[in-house]
Design a protein around this nucleic acid. Structure first.
Length: 942
DNA sequence: CGTAGGGTTACAA
DNA sequence: TTGTAACCCTACG
């Protein structure tokens, strides 16, 4: 609850004011809903608006926040009657029920008049009643007529008068008796200046003067104030009002004081009155004596009289009775006269005494009466004072109320006038706006009118034109009609309308001269023309193209012709050349043919001679036919000109070449002998070669046999070896298990020792493997060496001494081949074993997944795993052969003493060839799979 | 729900 | 301490 949560901004205040002006105060919701102000006042509620307006109006009115609410209801109350006469305002304050808005008389009178009239009206009424001096009071009409005579009253004087009379009657100033009004006694004392008993002029005059002074003073003051009020500001008015209220409150206090005093005085006066009455009674009873001895009466104390009065009164009564009886009874003269005289003397004495007493009493009485009159006087004075105070009080209250009403009315009036002024301003603005709009509209209309005029002129001119056109049209129509009539039948002169109708009713065909056929024809022709034109263009283009092509072709033709000419020339020259060449060649060929013929003849002769010569040696030739073939292969540089029998040809060739050589040398006999010798030597050579060839072939055969045999041996050996290896692996496994058992038993003591043993175990494995390898190799080497020796010995003659190294290479190759083959075999074996194991494993797995039987499976798995281990070991032992062949060439010589190299070999066995490595890995994987299956089994079983 | 009036309270002079 | 401005509460139609 922060104090001023949201201060009102000037904008919001302005919006609120505008909203109040627009919709009026109190219509907070509508102001809020108004889109004009909702943007500004969106965070204010209607209550907020109301409060703010209240605060603002409070500030504007100048009233404190505390004073305002007191005035507020009255303001509302007076808003309706702000134009009323002030008299009626006063009346309304007196709660007169029929108080209605009265016609205004103040319009003619000054503003200050009403109060004066009302106040003076009281005096006027009093004056009228007193001056009329009617015994039972004056009638209303009489008073009215009197006042009307004396003064110039307002129009509705009678009603005001009646109201005023009522008010005065209710107030106690007048007494209403039988519709007649007379002045009330209290005021009568003052007004009529009648003092019934003892009234002193000094005391009489002063209250009236005072009251009149007061009245006049207050009235003038009121007038002054009212005059001021019309001009003074709100603050001043408030000040004055506050002062008036203070004055009124003071007057009320004074009046109350006076009333109290008057009450006490009245009580005193009543007491005095009662006493006076009692005194008067006694006085009445003694009228005569009083009259007689009025002068004699001695003064006596008032209190004395008070003390004896009762007794004396009784005695006096008795005396008076006796006197009356004596006077009434004349019979008792003598005695009675004596007694009477005696008693008369006593009585006279007593009378004198009584006279004295009476004088005293009268004096007392006078005193008392004086006192009484004094009391009366005081009482009246007090009453007057009280009345005056009351009146003043009333006046003051009235004034206060009147001021309040005035102020409220003035403010209300001002508010309304402000509102009206604002409304009027608004209206004026709106009117000015409207006026502007109207002016604008007027201008627009003026311009429109001008435009219309222009248009009108244009239209008139158009009309004239149209009429002219119509005339021409009429003429046209007439012409057409005439044409029509001529075309149909005789011309009939009819009215223009009929002509028009007639022409309009005619069918279109009648007037369509160039319809259908013609137009179509024309269009067709046009189309044709178009098509023709198109085709013409096409043709032209084509023609151009054709021309171009023709030109091109012409050019080509010219070129070709030129070429043809050239070619012709060339052909002719060439043909001539060819002819020349041909003739030359023919001559040459003929010469050559002659030469050849002679040569052939000589050869044939020679051949015939030789045939005869070599008939003897034909057998030999037949035997050596194969050898000749071999010779052909060796000496592949023979002629292939003539083809004859293979045997013959070969023979001839064999012999031909030396023949030709011999022929070239020219010596037949010597040449023959030499040829024969050469022939013999050649034959010898041939036979030798033949022999060698046969030998070699035999050797080859033997070698092949040997290799086959060796292969068989190898297979057998590898099988045996694998078996042995398996056994060995088994043994090794057992050994290892035993070792592990031993190791577990004495684990604590021989931990490092166990490691050593394992190392040695590894060493041993490597050693065994190496041993196997070495033995194999040695064996192979030995065998090969012997074979090689045999081969060399068999070849004999020792002619090929340089063949040793090549033989060694060959042997090595062979060794390698063999070792590779062996390893391949072993690998094959091992791979088949692995395959078998894998299949077994799969079977086990299948049976496992299918049946879920626990029994027997672990055993099978164990078997598979152990077998796989064996295979692995075998593989590991068989593998090194492959590398030993290439790497251990030098280490072959070091036969058995290679324990260190074993270790190294073991180390170097890590770089085995990829195929064996793959096999190794496969075995490993197999073992792993078996292990995993076994583990799964155990887990399932658990 | 809208309006009016009375009352309360934080803040500033 | 008092006045002001904003807010809250309640009654009424």
């Amino acid at each position: 609850m922060g104090a001023p949560k949201q201060k009102w901004t000037a904008e919001e205040e302005a919006a609120l004011k505008a909203g109040v002006i627009k919709h009026g105060a109190g219509k907070w919701r509508t102001i809020l809903k108004d889109p004009e102000f909702s943007g500004v006042l969106y965070l204010r509620s209607n209550v907020d608006l109301k409060d703010k307006w209240r605060n603002m109006s409070v500030m504007v009115n100048g009233y404190g926040s505390r004073e305002k609410p007191k005035l507020a209801p009255k303001r509302v109350h007076h808003v309706h009657r702000q134009d009323e006469n002030l008299m009626s305002v006063v009346q309304s304050d007196e709660d007169i029920p029929d108080a209605k808005p009265l016609p205004v008389s103040s319009a003619a009178l000054p503003v200050v008049n009403p109060k004066r009239t009302t106040v003076r009206l009281d005096n006027l009424i009093m004056e009228a009643i007193t001056s009329l001096k009617e015994p039972g009071g004056s009638h209303k009409t009489a008073i009215a007529s009197y006042i009307e005579e004396q003064y110039w009253p307002p129009n509705d004087f009678k009603r005001i008068l009646s109201a005023k009379l009522k008010y005065l009657a209710a107030n106690g100033k007048l007494i209403k008796v039988k519709r007649k009004y007379r002045i009330a006694p209290t005021s009568a004392f003052a007004e009529r200046r009648v003092s019934p008993l003892f009234f002193e002029g000094r005391q009489r005059i002063s209250p009236k003067i005072e009251r009149d002074d007061f009245n006049i003073l207050t009235m003038s003051q009121i007038d002054l104030d009212l005059g001021k009020m019309r001009t003074m500001t709100a603050e001043q008015a408030a000040e004055v009002a506050a002062r008036a209220v203070a004055e009124a409150e003071a007057a009320i206090a004074v009046a109350e004081e006076a009333a109290r005093e008057a009450e006490t005085a009245e009580a005193d006066a009543e007491a005095a009155q009662a006493f006076a009455e009692a005194a008067m009674k006694t006085l009445k009873g003694r009228t005569a004596p009083k009259m007689l001895g009025s002068i004699l009466g001695g003064p006596s104390g008032r209190f004395e009289l008070d003390g004896k009065s009762q007794k004396e009164r009784d005695e006096l009564h008795k005396d008076i009775e006796q006197l009356c009886m004596q006077q009434a009874g004349p019979g008792y003269l003598a005695a009675a006269t004596r007694m009477h005289f005696q008693r008369t003397a006593g009585l006279v004495q007593e009378i004198e005494k009584l006279k004295r007493q009476l004088v005293a009493c009268t004096r007392d009485n006078l005193n008392l009466q004086e006192e009484l009159s004094e009391a009366y006087r005081i009482k009246t004075q007090l009453a007057e004072l009280h009345q005056a105070e009351a009146a003043k009080n009333m006046e003051a209250e009235k004034q206060v109320k009147f001021f309040q009403g005035c102020v409220a009315a003035a403010f209300a009036e001002r508010d309304t006038s402000i509102m009206e002024a604002e409304k009027a301003k608004e209206k004026e603005e709106s009117m000015s706006q409207k006026f502007n709009e109207i002016q604008q509209r007027l201008e627009v209309l003026n311009s429109d009118v001008l435009e219309q005029k222009r248009l009108n002129d244009a239209l008139e001119s158009d009309l004239v034109k149209q009429e002219e056109q119509i005339e021409t049209f009429k003429k046209v129509v007439n012409k057409f009609y005439e044409i029509r009539q001529y075309s149909l039948e005789g011309f009939e002169d009819t009215s223009w309308d009929d002509k028009c109708a007639c022409l309009l009713h005619d069918s279109e065909e009648m007037w369509s001269y160039n319809d259908a056929s013609t137009s179509k024809y024309i269009s067709a022709l046009e189309e044709e023309v178009e098509a023709l034109r198109n085709s013409l263009e096409k043709l032209q283009s084509k023609l151009q193209v054709g021309l171009e092509i023709e030109n091109h072709l012409k050019k080509k033709v010219r070129e070709l012709e030129m070429k043809q000419v050239l070619w012709n020339k060339m052909v002719t020259t060439r043909i001539e050349e060819l002819r020349r060449y041909h003739s030359q060649h023919r001559d040459q060929i003929t010469s050559l043919l002659g030469e050849e013929r002679s040569y052939l003849k000589s050869i044939i002769d020679l051949a015939e001679e030789k045939i005869k010569q070599f008939d003897v040696t034909r057998e030999q030739n037949l035997e050596l036919c194969r050898v000749v073939k071999l010779q052909e292969n060796k000496f592949g540089d023979l002629h292939t000109s003539t083809d004859a029998d293979s045997a013959l040809a070969s023979k001839r060739n064999d012999e031909g070449s030396p023949d030709i050589v011999a022929d070239k040398e020219g010596n037949l006999s010597e040449g023959l002998a030499q040829a024969l010798q050469e022939k013999v030597s050649a034959l010898l050579l041939l036979s030798q070669q033949e022999e060698r060839h046969l030998l070699e072939r035999n050797v080859c055969m033997a070698l092949q046999k040997k290799t086959e045999e060796l292969q068989r041996n190898l297979l057998q050996v590898t099988n045996e070896k694998v078996k042995v290896l398996m056994e060995l692996a088994q043994l090794k496994l057992e050994y290892q298990q035993l070792q592990e058992k031993v190791g577990s038993e004495i684990k604590q003591d021989f931990l490092c020792d166990n490691g050593e043993r394992r190392l040695s175990n590894h060493e041993r494995d490597g050693r065994i493997r190496n041993l196997l390898k070495r033995t194999y190799l040695r064996r192979w080497m030995g065998m090969l060496d012997s074979g090689n020796e045999a081969q060399t010995s068999k070849s004999g003659a020792g002619s090929f001494s340089g063949k040793r190294s090549t033989d060694m290479d060959f042997a090595r190759m062979k060794i390698e081949n063999a070792t590779l083959k062996e390893s391949m075999e072993s690998m094959d074996h091992l791979i088949s074993a692995i395959h078998r194991l894998r299949l077994a494993l799969l079977k086990v797995k299948e049976s496992d997944t299918r049946e879920g039987t626990v029994s027997g499976l672990p055993v099978a798995l164990d078997d598979i795993i152990s077998e796989a281990r064996l295979v692995k070991i075998a593989l590991g032992s068989s593998l090194p052969i492959s590398w030993s062949a290439e790497a251990d060439d030098a280490s072959i010589c070091e036969s058995f003493h290679n324990r260190l190299t074993d270790i190294y070999g073991e180390h170097s066995s890590e770089k085995i060839d990829p195929v064996s490595a793959a096999g190794f890995e496969m075995v490993e994987l197999l073992i792993l799979a078996g292990q995993i299956l076994k583990d799964n089994k155990t887990i399932k079983g658990s």
